[in-house]
Design a protein around this nucleic acid. Structure first.
Lengths: 251, 251
DNA sequence: GCGGTATGGTTCACTATTTGAACCAATGGT
DNA sequence: ACCATTGGTTCAAATAGTGAACCATACCGC
């Protein structure tokens, strides 16, 4: 394993739940030697990717990541471009819409929107990692993955996941009920890049009791339309077979 | 030089002007060997820090930086916390307010706000690097830097910079006229962290012809107040001597 | 068609960087 | 006073990094 990979793995250890980590914790979590870990952190800190804070000298993500993200959004405004569509989708369905994209093999929440009306809503957070095996978004992505077998095999219940994926392939929309979060009913569609590869998923999540047949139909219709729209905005290409399925959903 | 440092230096080569770079350009710009450069980029790409795009296989910053930035803002909402103050400052002065912070030794634009009224405004971009030697923000930071000599010596006109720094120390506010951008008149104050170290600068920039004595007084008053406010919000501590100067400015 | 010159990417002997057990210093609890 | 933490440092040993030369492909002028 390259040292660069080790250093970047250290960055991945920071999360919403543990935004600050001491040297000891980082060595334990990473499995690296303490000296190695310390040297890598020193390198990262020198470039501002992490910073040390307080008398405990704990580490946290540094200001340089903000600069990189600003440059990324300036160059590739994926998030910004998708935001209005996300809001429109949330508004049209009355539920929570969220968009995730594949980064380094994982599915990460990029953005989300709530409908501006009262009632129970599914809440989201940016930068959260969605498990492939328990989310509609995950199933949507795997359904159009060139080689999903490894990820399917790693799931706690491969059979259930495989059913869900086949269902998503057949209908063009993935669905989960109370899998990742209890009492949450989710529908998701994949999003594609210019090469026709699946790079993310768009989903609408509603509380289970709210999901009437009417709402289900509304979400399916608006979700597929929004999926096509975001794929287009990102310069992507929806595979022909799926485009036909989605046209059917639009009626 | 450690390999991690080399890899991180590669990331720094991407900018607003050159958001996409080929392998050849990256090797030239970095001075690394092509094979080395390629391997580092492969490592970075595997973690989503960069991605390859198009038939030319050019590299650009990847989606992972968005995730890191989202986590950073969730943990340390510096940008978000400062935004309202920035807007208030822009509004109160009628000009452009901007906030920069030190990352890896460089001064980088973090955020900015324009006054919502007609007239000529100085325009800003996020993530731009401000030169220490030609900006009011740079002088403000150097004035409270523990060891500014090296940076001063590197300036094209060290003497002029030294004057500007001394002036900033004496008045608590740094000032430049037509140095970085022609016909732009800037005033800046430093911003501090909990340890009393200077970590950035807050500035107001106006077109030279607009800078009347009245406006100058208004900016000085509101800028020092806002500087104290942001330092406080960020959990920082304004040095006693400077706090006294600023209180004088507030009248 | 050909040669020349770009491009991105790969190989492998050589070597310089990385590694990790053991160490130090400081702090907190009993 | 002692033990158990913490963060951080050292240096011989070993691994991972390096770079000149290589390949494949694409484009341009002739």
């Amino acid at each position: 394993m390259s040292t660069v990979t080790k250093a970047l793995d250290l960055l991945q250890l920071f999360s919403r739940d543990s935004p600050q980590l001491g040297l000891g914790q980082l060595t334990r979590l990473s499995g690296l030697n303490k000296a190695t870990c310390h040297r890598l952190l020193t390198d990262l800190a020198a470039k501002g990717l992490v910073e040390q804070v307080g008398p405990q000298r704990e580490y946290r993500l540094g200001p340089a990541v903000l600069r990189l993200a600003a440059l990324r959004e300036a160059a590739v405004p994926m998030r910004q471009a998708a935001q209005p569509i996300l809001r429109k989708l949330a508004e049209a369905t009355g539920e929570t819409a969220h968009l995730s994209h594949r980064v380094a093999g994982r599915l990460v929440t990029l953005s989300y929107a709530y409908a501006a009306r009262p009632g129970m809503k599914v809440m989201m957070e940016d930068a959260d990692v969605l498990p492939y095996h328990a989310t509609a978004s995950g199933a949507a992505v795997l359904a159009f993955h060139p080689d999903p077998e490894q990820l399917i095999a790693a799931a706690p219940e491969p059979a259930a996941l495989r059913d869900r994926i086949n269902d998503a392939r057949a209908r063009g929309v993935a669905e989960t009920v109370s899998t990742f979060e209890k009492d949450v009913h989710s529908l998701a569609v994949p999003v594609f890049d210019a090469g026709g590869a699946c790079i993310g998923a768009l989903a609408v999540a509603a509380a289970v009791p709210r999901m009437t047949p009417d709402l289900h139909a509304t979400i399916t219709r608006d979700l597929t339309a929004a999926g096509a729209e975001i794929t287009g905005l990102w310069g992507g290409q929806v595979p022909e077979s799926l485009a036909r399925l989605w046209k059917g959903a639009a009626r």
